[in-house]
């Protein structure tokens, strides 16, 4: 058994080495490249401060794109998720819907962006459309999984009253999963800010568009400054969404609202 494991590990290592050789990934190149990092930093320091204004404006455009994409994508996702949930539908409904959603999910966001740049031209609109598609693929899976995780007892009890499917969704499924759905929306927004920064690289607007152009013209310092702005923004949004989730969603879900009030009084 142990020998077999060693053999497997040996084969994997050999495969990594062989593949690296094949694609020309030479660690020596990496070491030789380290000093280039110093040059980039040097250039970045010399960048005029006015450029930061442009960086923030384009970052804001990216955030707007991510925001629109998340809200519109999320709104389209919700009814689709209701149809894709196995506990609410027959397999003739959720089967085809899930197949379509899986197909949407297979395409990475950057390919969606390229598709929409071809369709509607360069600019933020293509990026927004790509973000919507990406959000639908990504979010429906999260949503229908939390809909399926809703406690079956209230669903059965209310269903036995003879309510309609839409009433069941409105009065049982939604309230029981609202906390999860909201927290997923925040998480997806957070995630979409990163994605929307990347899809700009293919011309779909936002800060990524600037970064790729600076790289094209060998202005690595400026590109680095813009990348740092992305990094800082993502960290801030991440921090804010964790705070919101902790404060409003996780606590109300567990009924900790009351305890917190007792503690402060």
């Amino acid at each position: 058994m142990n020998q077999k494991n060693n053999l497997i590990i040996g084969i994997i290592i050999a495969a990594v080495v062989a593949a690296s050789y094949n694609v020309g990934a030479d660690p020596a190149e990496f070491v030789k490249g380290i000093p280039n990092l110093g040059i980039i930093i040097e250039e970045a320091i010399q960048v005029e401060p006015e450029l930061l204004g442009t960086a923030f404006v384009s970052m804001f455009e990216t955030i707007e794109m991510a925001f629109i994409g998340t809200i519109v994508g999320g709104a389209i996702s919700l009814p689709l998720s209701m149809l894709a949930a196995r506990n609410l539908n027959s397999k003739y409904v959720y089967g085809p819907i899930r197949a379509v959603l899986a197909a949407i999910r297979t395409l990475p966001s950057i390919l969606w962006a390229i598709l929409f740049v071809i369709m509607v031209g360069l600019g933020p609109f293509a990026g927004i459309l790509a973000t919507i598609m990406y959000t639908i693929g990504f979010m429906t899976k999260l949503q229908y999984e939390s809909i399926e995780a809703v406690d079956a007892d209230p669903v059965d009890a209310v269903n036995a009253i003879g309510v309609s499917k839409s009433q069941l969704i409105r009065y049982v499924v939604m309230p029981e999963s609202a906390a999860h759905l909201l927290s997923q929306l925040l998480y997806t927004f957070d995630y979409n800010v990163r994605h929307t920064s990347i899809i700009g690289l293919v011309g779909a607007g936002g800060i990524g568009f600037y970064i790729i152009n600076y790289i094209k013209f060998f202005e690595y310092g400026k590109a680095a400054v813009f990348m740092l702005v992305v990094l800082a923004t993502v960290l801030v949004i991440d921090w804010i969404s964790v705070k919101i989730r902790d404060k409003y969603i996780v606590k109300t879900q567990r009924g900790m609202e009351v305890k917190a009030r007792i503690k402060t009084s």
Binding site: D153, P154, A157, V158, A160, I161, V163, Q167, P175
Partner: peptide
Amino acid sequence: MAKIGYIPQSLGLIKNLTVIDNVLIGALP
């Protein structure tokens, strides 16, 4: 079904809804 009041062992209340909304669910049909 609308005329059968069923109270399961686990009660089947919607924990995030208010008392009155939970009761109004019985009137939905």
